[in-house]
Write a protein that binds this DNA or RNA. Structure first.
Length: 410
DNA sequence: CATCCACAGGAAAACGCGGTTG
DNA sequence: CAACCGCGTTTTCCTGTGGATG
């Protein structure tokens, strides 16, 4: 009895030791923005901006806002940029710095961050604004009239004569229509309070303007600022900073970082994705040699890919999953391209076997295009002349992944 | 060159389901 | 409790399509 306990203890110790030897991630919090405490986050941001990243964009924002230091009222701004291009982070940084400068020169300036990153109703959005203005306001579910919320906002601003900058993240994320919020903020609010409002709207939709009521748009005497996605050099700097904070630098190859940066910038230029890949690579390295090199990055990239498709397949509805399986089981049997009709037959048989209702071919074809859209299959539209036209279905996933996916769900 | 296959994909009707009303 | 409504999904019905084939 005690002997067994000893060996187990020994095992634990030895695992612990070998882990320590390969330990690469010293401070995992720095790889995950969400986990950082507020002041740490600010410090990290500061360092990023000290490295001259997003310099151009910062310049544009500052150029737009600076007049207010001399009492001029800047117009509202509309900022475009894809996800992960640092819109939010940059703006928070600039505005908080601005606040300090304004304070020093005796200009009344406040800013307030309104987070609409998850879709909100008009009421929810107002609630968010109110909470930003007055920390004592709670988040309400419902049961409170919209007017009350509006009054709360007006109340919070009563007696404030300085500039108020509302930074609205994902401003188009108000359901059912974003117009209502803008109408309130632009037309109603200025009439009720004496604060001087500046709206800064962040969005990643380039077609945003087309979707907004033109009357409101004209009210926004807006200036546009564009956030280009990060290029590989920017990403490299960002990654370096993360590595310094979170990892054991003596075990990280600069080439590997370059690879991560190159990969991310080739994809979307999304900094969050880049960090995600870095994290994954670090984990891969910890599992193996403890050295983060280019090979580990490749492995991580692959794994990320697999994870993504796996999650995608997990999330499929029963019918979609069945269609997916039908395609691949047919593909593994015949190594030629498969037509919609053939796939449908297999699918129908599978439905029978599982005791599920068989959907019509019309529906099935929709499901196929859906699967194609998500990259789980390739379905190219081909005309075979007299013998009709079909989607030529072929697999887009690697053999091993497919096998893994077909197994567990029986 | 007209024909015709085997499906694509649009439109509209039908269905299903939770919620509401009289 | 039936009737009704709103909304997303599915079926039904339909027209369109590109090129091999006779």
């Amino acid at each position: 009895m005690s002997k067994r306990a000893d060996t187990t203890e020994f095992l634990i110790e030895s695992v612990r030791n070998s882990r320590k030897k390969r330990l690469l991630v010293l401070n995992p919090d720095y790889l995950d923005d969400e986990k950082l405490p507020e002041h740490e986050r600010a410090a990290v941001l500061k360092e990023i901006f000290n490295r001259n990243i997003r310099e151009k964009q910062i310049g544009r924002v500052i150029a737009h806002l600076t007049p207010l230091l001399d009492g001029f009222h800047p117009a509202s701004v509309l900022i475009f940029g894809p996800t992960g291009s640092g819109k939010t982070v940059t703006l928070i940084h600039v505005l908080s710095t601005f606040q300090r400068v304004a304070e020093r020169s005796g200009v009344g300036f406040r800013y307030c961050y309104v987070d609409l990153t998850s879709p909100k109703t008009f009421f929810g959005a107002l609630n968010e604004v109110a909470m930003g203005l007055d920390a004592s306001v709670r988040r309400y579910r419902k049961g409170i009239p919209v007017e009350y919320m509006q009054d709360t906002i007006v109340g919070a601003l009563r007696g404030y004569n300085g500039f108020l900058c509302l930074l609205i993240d994902e401003a188009d994320n108000v359901r059912p229509n974003p117009d209502s919020l803008l109408t309130f903020l632009l037309k109603t609010l200025p009439r009720k309070v004496s604060s001087r409002l500046i709206l800064i709207l962040l969005t990643n939709r380039m077609d945003w303007e087309a979707r907004v009521d033109p009357r409101i748009l004209s009210f926004l005497k807006k200036t546009d600022i564009l956030f280009e996605p990060y290029d590989a050099l920017d990403l490299l700097e960002i990654l370096k900073l993360r590595v310094e904070k979170a990892l054991d630098t003596s075990r990280v190859d600069v080439g590997a970082l370059r690879k991560v940066a190159a990969y991310a910038s080739r994809e979307t230029g999304d900094a969050r994705k880049a960090v995600e890949l870095l994290t994954k690579a670090a984990r891969v390295a910890e599992e193996s040699s403890g050295w983060l090199g280019e090979v580990e990055v490749d492995v991580a990239e692959q794994r990320l890919e697999v994870d993504k498709t796996e999650a995608l397949v997990q999330a499929l509805a029963v019918q979609q999953l069945l269609a997916f399986k039908a395609c691949y089981s047919l593909l593994s049997r015949t190594h030629k391209k498969v037509s919609t009709g053939q796939a449908y037959e297999v699918y129908a048989r599978m439905c029978d076997a599982e005791g599920l209702r068989v959907l019509t071919q019309r529906r099935f074809s929709d499901i196929l295009s859906f699967l194609d859209l998500y990259g789980l299959i390739n379905a190219r539209l081909v005309s075979k002349g007299r013998y009709g036209s079909t989607r030529e279905i072929s697999g887009s996933l690697a053999q091993e992944i497919v096998e893994r996916l077909m197994r567990p769900a029986r």
